[in-house]
């Protein structure tokens, strides 16, 4: 299940997929979308006026859950906490901030005309 999720860097994007309206999102929270069989968690970080996307799968116990996690910041680093065991991951780099080894894939997001897009490689 884990291998399918690979970070896509902004410069690697070859196509954008429209997934939702900006207004579908709660403030400072996430939603899960299905994109070509993958589960992607998209977060609207209203306080910082930023958007992030990561895999929805928490690599710790392999649960499809991260979109339901609380977001926040560790210093300046934006992060999401898995609801199950509070493992926290950087929304920017996908790195596990608890010092464990597992990390998550991140994806580019863009907003255009009120629509939310996820980047493809």
């Amino acid at each position: 299940m884990l291998v399918q999720y690979k970070t896509i860097k902004p410069e690697e994007v070859s196509a954008w997929k429209m997934v939702l309206n900006e207004t579908d999102f709660p403030e400072n929270g996430g939603l899960c979308v299905s994109v070509d069989g993958l589960q992607i968690a998209i977060f609207k970080f209203s306080r910082r006026d930023e958007w992030y996307a990561t895999q929805n799968l928490c690599p710790h116990k392999k649960q499809m859950i991260l979109s339901r996690g609380l977001i926040g910041a560790h210093g300046e680093e934006p992060k999401v906490a898995c609801p199950f065991h509070k493992k926290t991951f950087s929304l920017k780099t996908g790195k596990n901030l608890n010092g464990d080894e597992c990390e998550i894939a991140t994806y580019p997001v863009k907003i255009k005309d009120g629509k939310v897009y996820v980047g493809y490689a």
């Binding site: 400072n28 609380l70 910041a73």
Partner: peptide
């Protein structure tokens, strides 16, 4: 300061609920 985290958000949510007993889902993402 900052943007909050998974420790202070639920703690403050609990305080707000203990003091005002507002609808929990009004602020669902904390």
């Amino acid at each position: 300061t900052g943007d909050g985290c998974e420790t202070c958000k639920p703690a403050v949510a609990s305080l707000l609920a203990s003091i005002w007993n507002d609808k929990i889902l009004k602020q669902d993402t904390i």
